[in-house]
Design a protein around this nucleic acid. Structure first.
Lengths: 179, 179
DNA sequence: GCTCAAACGGATAGTTCATCCGAATTGCTC
DNA sequence: GAGCAATTCGGATGAACTATCCGTTTGAGC
């Protein structure tokens, strides 16, 4: 990918900046263009689909999650590694509404996202393998199912008036332990 | 509310019939009208908003849930009552995608829905009160939070390829028990 | 079978979406 | 710093969809 021309970089940054001030689910390209002071065509050129824009908006958060996965992999207590990682992932997903769709998407538009996701999901798998082996997480539960549970918890937290995720997280963690 | 004229009843039934064959989230009124062989205006007259249509589509399922709540209230084992009801509610929500939005909506368009919801939510509250008193459900958890958890589980199950809700349900039930 | 309130249908105005292409800008070379 | 090719810009544009309005039709009661 060749370096961006200076005007293109400026447009891209403006669009992302404006997009960050909108609800993640209600990104209307025409509005973004007007507010960013660029043409609609410019927005569509930089981000052919809404998902491409969401990926770009989410990239920072995804990198933070990647770092947290590495930290969890360095943790020797398998149970603590799972608890820390799930809490962190849930927090990030709550903070950045676009994260869940990006994590769940089967296809990624950007290579950076694909690489980050690969490390994140691989590390997560590894942490769960250890946790199952240590007997701190039910063995009859796939990695994908645990991911889905975190997404479900995000959904549950968002339904509440207060966004206190802790009770929900505790229920998830208690539920994950073997009977 | 006066009885429906015969042609109106026919139109309404046709629209509901067609709507049932569509994805709950993608109900486009113009399409429904064409497929049902009525004018768009007719659709909008019967169902001023998408939510009104979803309520109408959901009413049967809501009645089934009401019956299940009554059954759970008759159950003497508080823990079993909770488990049975949550499983049933989750199944119904998975079966009828419109149920979650209807249950969560603060305002209801139809009186029948309002009444059914009132009994359902009241009964659910009662069952949880008993369960907390019996020490089979964590006391630090509001009824609303448990409702949100069920909705979160629905979300989690839908994310999976297989729609086997049982593992998710087991995790929820295990998590709900006091530590 | 007459009346009239109720229901019907679809034309239409108002939005939003996404593309296309002539104009303008940029960075490179000399 | 002038010329040039490549890239990007911007918004006009048409397609798709929403929701309303009103002249016409239908059905129920007398």
């Amino acid at each position: 990918m060749p370096a961006l021309r200076s005007d293109a970089a400026r447009s891209r940054a403006r669009i992302l900046d404006v997009a960050r001030r909108h609800e993640p689910g209600a990104l209307r390209f025409n509005d973004l263009a007007r507010e960013a002071g660029v043409g609609v065509g410019t927005v569509y050129r930089h981000f052919p689909t809404t998902h491409a824009l969401v990926e770009a908006l989410t990239l920072d958060t995804l990198e933070r999650l990647r770092v947290l996965v590495r930290a969890a992999l360095a943790e020797t207590d398998a149970g603590r590694a799972v608890a820390d990682l799930l809490r962190a992932a849930l927090d990030l997903q709550l903070e950045e509404g676009g994260l869940q769709p990006v994590l769940l998407a089967a296809e990624d538009e950007s290579d950076e996202v694909r690489e980050a996701k690969q490390e994140i999901l691989g590390g997560f798998e590894q942490i769960l393998v250890r946790a199952r082996a240590a007997g701190v997480v039910r063995p009859d539960l796939s990695t994908a199912q645990v991911e889905h549970l975190v997404c479900g918890m995000e959904h549950a937290v968002r339904l509440g008036a207060s966004s206190d995720r802790e009770p929900y997280l505790q229920i998830l963690l208690a539920g994950l332990r073997p009977a």
